[in-house]
Write a protein that binds this DNA or RNA. Sequence first.
DNA 1: ATGAAAGCGCTAACAC
DNA 2: GTGTTAGCGCTTTCAT
Lengths: 377, 377
Amino acid sequence: MPAVSKPPAKNLRPAEPKAAAPSSSKAMKETAAAAAVVAERERRRLQMADIARLAGVSVSTVSRALSGSTLVNAETRQRVVELARSLNYTINQGAQNLRMQKNRTIAVVVPYDSTSRQHISDPFFLAIVGSIADALTDRGYEMLLSRVDSEKLDSAGASYDAGRVIGVIIIGQWRHHDQLNEMAARHVPLVVWGAEMPQQLYCTVGGDNHDGGYQATRHLIKGGRKRILFLGDPQLPEVRWRHQGYLDALKEAGIKFDRQWLLDVPFEEAAARRRLDEAYRDGLSFDGVVACSDLLALQAVRAVRATGRRVPGDVSITGYDDAPLAAWSDPPLTTVHQPVDEAGRRIVEALLAQVEGEPPRSRTMPVNLVVRKSTVG
Amino acid sequence: MPAVSKPPAKNLRPAEPKAAAPSSSKAMKETAAAAAVVAERERRRLQMADIARLAGVSVSTVSRALSGSTLVNAETRQRVVELARSLNYTINQGAQNLRMQKNRTIAVVVPYDSTSRQHISDPFFLAIVGSIADALTDRGYEMLLSRVDSEKLDSAGASYDAGRVIGVIIIGQWRHHDQLNEMAARHVPLVVWGAEMPQQLYCTVGGDNHDGGYQATRHLIKGGRKRILFLGDPQLPEVRWRHQGYLDALKEAGIKFDRQWLLDVPFEEAAARRRLDEAYRDGLSFDGVVACSDLLALQAVRAVRATGRRVPGDVSITGYDDAPLAAWSDPPLTTVHQPVDEAGRRIVEALLAQVEGEPPRSRTMPVNLVVRKSTVG
DNA sequence: ATGAAAGCGCTAACAC
DNA sequence: GTGTTAGCGCTTTCAT
């Protein structure tokens, strides 16, 4: 190679020099063993060039061997693969991804709502995360889990813009319809666990909230209840649908809805209890409660019992989600079961479809009422 | 540029050509707007070169501007930053990491044990995952969550070897002491939620299991119980310690342990129930149960009640973990509270210390007994 | 204050 | 069947 065609090599190392390598490339003709020892001593991360040197072949050959290419001699391949194995060498995924323009990582975001304080520790959300993790693992994708302030949801989009992930899953839509729409408009592959809304650009997967609210209410009515409270915050899309189902069930039974029956509490236990106590103090009279989570329902149970009344004797109460707790509580809760296991699969399915370029398709899954002892009928 | 000094450019694109760019570099002097439009139309991911072209500066300048370097003219910086902002451009993290040799992601692995079937959906493990996610987020790290067959735990090490993550957190040690030791011997920064064991190379963070078992048992004894079963599988390190604590409490009270009192069931509900029913059938007589999870305890409650006996009247029962469910169950469980919130912080702390090169330091956190209604005393 | 160019660890087209 | 080399999208030294 004529000297004119290439400037002398310069020292352009990144901050951390990878190794105190001899400066002359000729001095690098060390023996395999020695090189391994050096690499180990320096505690530098092994790389393809090391394997190549040790195996006495070029990096291309190593690359081909490790990818199982038939272009490389079977025996050579064997040797390289075993060498890599024995040294615990694994292809640097970052470099590979960069070169191949591939990526199999999905962001899963659990927003925390500064107002309602229901965050990642919510058992139902955690269960969904688990279910998504399973579905993703099954399909060979990786999951990057993070918490994000729900006011800054778009920071979830940033990890997409940064090429860090190829799609985003958000657990719960809260009040952030607009932010979500914006992300979708930017073509971030996105699936949100929640309820379908009018004028929605993004894709949601969720339970049938209208039917959930309807079934629970209908069940109470069938049990002879006529003054039924609704416990939840209808500002949240999921809750709004449940409330609509509740209203429809009332109407169907010819029961006129009383504004006072709506107890718009956030997903927070203490607030629910306070709100119920207030209702009693205000002389509100009721014989049924449709709550928007199992924990809320149990708070209602406590509030009712605190007045000397009985559940379900005097007041029937339904929960929502069918968390493990619902089956074991006192009383065991009649509750709307959400299909957590299916949820993970559906969410992942919907996301990967978008990654493949298909248009977003929302999906509503059926829910079913599990009747236990917190209601009569 | 003399032709001799450089071979003609060849087409060495990776599989997906990034854009149908004009072949002459002179033709690339498009206007800013046009370029943006093209990039958008091609739906190619924006990159630094695009921003550079649009801003009329070199990529180096863009790089410097975006990193807030003072080496760049304040006004230029402003312009570049705003341009990037308005186009939702974000530095490609993969490329940046590769170049800078940095990485802030941590693998969190929830093994599933094919034998006992307790897997990622276990509420307690999920809660720990949530707690770790919080701690990691707080410190600016990312979390890669995955499930792994506990027989192939070392695949967790692979993502370290691949440079994908800089450390690994494993939730639950199960029976895989040896595999974990191996990983640690390979210097994979590693923290395991579990119990400390003799001859352990890896770092564990966990509750004080001996004390948990001891406190629960002691509480039963104080309540006058003398024939106390232990429900759990002592093959698991955590359970082994709890059992030891149980034995020590018995000995201290001068109660002789009867081999039959050990009901070695895995963390699986159905099995626990079956085992208890068998015990009754075999004529085993007992007045207390120390269970190794809240769910196990509740199964015990059912089994006891199924014989017409009462809890805690005839049999006192303690749980373990203090899951949300324990407070609401029937009866509310006396149980050993595990410090979930602190757990996440401690685990992350221990891991990052290792990443910084410090030697592994295990940590045992205090636990405390929460007395409710499933025991007398 | 800015630009040119090398190289992070890898893959694949091209030459032999 | 194997080696050489360009380049994935960045950062940083060096030169200006």
